[in-house]
């Protein structure tokens, strides 16, 4: 059996890679992709904790169901995020978030 901390370590690494992408990449699409990585790192954690938790007599479903909801939110986030990126590009000819700063005081 693979110990639980190994799953958590991989998830931690994936999450950190995602954080690096969000902080360092310039292109908004790349930032969105890094956010997807972070969401999936969280999903690994949720499913791993769900699988390794002692259930006793009745079956636990919280981790399983929660992961399904995270997937739904990820899909919604990608759809709306990409729509915003395309609109910003259409108006400003740029996909770099720093350049879309009209509202900055």
């Amino acid at each position: 059996m693979v110990p639980l901390w190994m799953y958590l370590a991989v998830a931690a690494a994936l999450f950190s890679i995602g954080v690096f992408g969000v902080l360092a990449r310039r292109n908004a699409v790349a930032i969105l992709m890094s956010v997807e990585l972070m969401l999936n790192a969280v999903n690994i954690n949720l499913v791993a904790f769900w699988r390794y938790s002692e259930t006793g007599t009745d079956l636990l479903l919280n981790g399983y169901a929660f992961t399904a909801f995270v997937l739904i939110v990820a899909a919604a986030e990608a759809a709306v995020g990409l729509a915003i990126i395309i609109t910003v590009y259409r108006n400003r000819r740029s996909v770099i978030p720093e350049e879309a700063a009209t509202l900055k005081g």
Binding site: V10, A13, L14, I17, G18, F20, G21, A24, R25, A30, M33, S34, L37
Partner: peptide, 8 residues
């Protein structure tokens, strides 16, 4: 992890 590195 390899895929993740590739993305960023």
């Amino acid at each position: 992890l390899g895929g993740g590195f590739g993305v960023v």
